[in-house]
């Protein structure tokens, strides 16, 4: 447990003592702030639904940047061998990197709470969909980070890892469109692989437990395969 805590602190420092994290957060807030104010001024709607969908897409693009270096960087710097020969398990290494990446996501979501506060100041927003939207984004990000981490474990090159996870994310974003063309029962199977299908219910405040289960299971699958991929290296 102590080694896991030490690894987690190391990973958190690696993220938050470099300017990259702040650049990512600042750009994220700039884009989202602009989107939010523009949507608010044009539509006059006291809702964050459009913002949630925008963040959903933004996560598909930024998570590969966050996760690409997690293992591939260690490999490039030849610190991975040192790490794996130390008395720490693969589970600790993967989980510490995973939690550190998730903390960056959590900070981004926390700062975006300024939009909900703005709505509360000027109007009476419906808090149910706002809370469920944030929960959906957190679950969505947890699945993305696990899959991105797996890509980083599988290849040595950071760019290849980023492109690999980005391609997979984009496929899982739009796969439901393909699913509707398939015959029964493959259509249901493919449609339910779509991140967007499962995320939409959270954003609108009409959520199903199976959607939460989908993201949890994808995250656990990604973590499990990452642990095995790292171990086999």
């Amino acid at each position: 447990m102590k080694t896991f805590a030490a690894l987690l602190v190391k990973e958190e420092k690696a993220i938050f003592t470099t300017p990259i994290a702040y650049v990512v957060i600042a750009v994220f807030l700039l884009i989202m702030g602009y989107t939010f104010t523009l949507t608010l001024f044009m539509s006059h709607a006291a809702s964050l639904v459009h913002v949630f969908f925008q963040i959903y897409v933004l996560f598909l693009l930024t998570v590969p940047i966050i996760t690409m270096r997690l293992i591939a960087e260690e490999r490039r710097l030849r610190t991975l061998e040192v790490l794996l020969t130390a008395p720490v398990s693969e589970v600790s290494v993967i989980l510490s990197k995973y939690l550190a990446s998730m903390s960056l996501i959590a900070v981004m979501l926390l700062l975006s709470g300024a939009y909900a506060i703005t709505l509360a100041i000027f109007g009476q927003p419906d808090w149910g969909p706002i809370f469920s939207g944030y929960l959906g984004l957190l679950l969505h990000a947890s699945a993305l980070v696990a899959v991105g981490l797996l890509a980083s474990c599988l290849v040595s090159n950071q760019i290849v890892a980023a492109v690999m996870s980005l391609s997979l994310f984009l496929l899982l974003w739009i796969i439901d469109k393909l699913g509707y063309l398939l015959p029964d029962p493959f259509n249901a199977l493919v449609v339910n692989m779509s991140f967007l299908v499962h995320f939409r219910t959270f954003a609108t405040g009409s959520l199903f437990l199976s959607d939460a289960g989908f993201f949890i299971s994808v995250a656990l699958l990604g973590l499990f395969l990452s642990i095995r991929a790292l171990g086999q290296r």
Binding site: F16, T17, T18, P19, A21, Y22, V23, I25, A26, V27, L29, L30, G33, Y34, F36, T37, L40, F41, L111, A114, Y115, T118, F122
Partner: peptide
């Protein structure tokens, strides 16, 4: 509208960027 735009589009991202610069 002016206050909302300034706080959310200018000050908030700028504050994070400045923090990154300090780090």
């Amino acid at each position: 509208m002016q206050i909302t735009f300034l706080v959310l589009v200018v000050f908030l991202p700028l504050a994070v960027a400045l923090l990154g610069g300090v780090v």
